[in-house]
Design a protein around this nucleic acid. Structure first.
Lengths: 129, 129, 129, 129
DNA sequence: GTGGTCTAGACCACA
DNA sequence: GTGGTCTAGACCACA
């Protein structure tokens, strides 16, 4: 359910955060659903429990999880903030990319159209993934 | 010519690299033009010379600068590599953004069209910046 | 009669303590009245009996309950201690709040007057809740 | 400048956070002012550097500090959020206290007036603190 | 068993 | 020197 890529330059706790955020915002994890315990997930991923605890704590600070000591960690009920946050992120990245594309002399719209077509072709061809 | 933003999350050497790359790719720095010496630029920006040295070394590795020991650092004559690299980067970022936009339920093409229009409107008003 | 809010940051045993104290001080539970047994209340609330036991023990230490081994837990007859304790708590909190309000540059008396008025207005409209 | 009270039930990192927040919101620490380094403060307070790092990281998440790896930790420039946050906190605590005072049968306004008078008397008598 | 805190200590990137 | 990450391991409150 959660994977660590040791070749990834980002810290482990950030990779975990990102994957949980994705699961929550795509509905893979429902509100009030319980997450694997700190110790259990640490065992599964063969990493130190402190690292999991850090990821969970940061997600709690972001309002995505809430923790009940003695009970476990749970998905937060209000996901509106998360959704709005993600949209804003996409907007910011899009604006930045637009600027970079212009500087590099790339027609971004044409590029994206091409990427979308490729994607459609792949989906048509193979059922995989 | 080069500015450092201490509030920026990215390391200083990366900010310097980015600005030099931009100057080179926009023609602000011509092929074979000499860059300020490590010490001089360090003095100007009031930062550690190691930081400038690191930026220059990394730019050399990327083929954007070349160094003549005892003489200084110069803009590379062949900028083809740089251009190709930038295009590849834009492509990668575009693919990633496309994925994220889908997950966030954002219509990326519409968003970009809107951003482009806004930009056009602003340009009409004031030439500068 | 007693509710648990799993979103509440405070431990469950504390929530239970607070509600029983409130019931006692408002007369919802009379002196010498018997409380539900540890097991029964644990069943009703679907929580660990240890948690109920802890709440009852702490309330006994505060002089609010007394336990007759083999018979059950009962509301203490002498509620003077409880009243004095609550008054002291309010005084302490008031002193602390006064300090904080000054630091934050808030006029506490004005704020409280406003809150009281709002409350009065609400009470006028609807009797309930 | 910063003290730890080992009799305090709250964790050390929280005590440190609270004191820095206070210093920032009262102007004892100015925007962009540098804080003592993680290691130095840890030495001064005779605690583990990780604990200081935790306090600083949490304050960064709250937007009160920003950290530049290799340079240090600095007070954030925009303190508006902090101020609004503190006001809201005072309001919430005041509403809660008002409720508790009513339940305990205490006249909160009278109590506060008394506390303020005492305070004024003390200030008049001794210059201290 | 569950999360939270803290220490000791290592290693890394950055300045 | 500066902060960031991670491990190993201890101890605590809570359920």
């Amino acid at each position: 359910m959660i994977y660590i890529d040791y070749r990834d330059k980002r810290p482990i706790y950030e990779q975990i955060m990102e994957q949980i955020e994705r699961l929550v915002s795509t509905g893979g994890l429902k509100p009030d659903e319980q997450l694997p315990s700190v110790r259990k997930l640490a065992m599964t991923l063969s990493i130190n429990p402190n690292t999991i605890a850090k990821a969970y704590t940061m997600l709690e600070q972001k309002g995505i999880l809430y923790s009940r000591p003695g009970l476990g960690n749970f998905v937060s009920a209000d996901l509106e903030g998360l959704r709005r946050q993600r949209c804003r992120q996409v907007e910011e990245k899009a604006a930045e990319l637009l600027r970079e594309a212009e500087e590099a002399g790339v027609d971004l719209m044409a590029l994206l159209t091409k990427l979308k077509e490729e994607e459609a072709t792949h989906d048509q061809g193979g059922r995989s993934q």
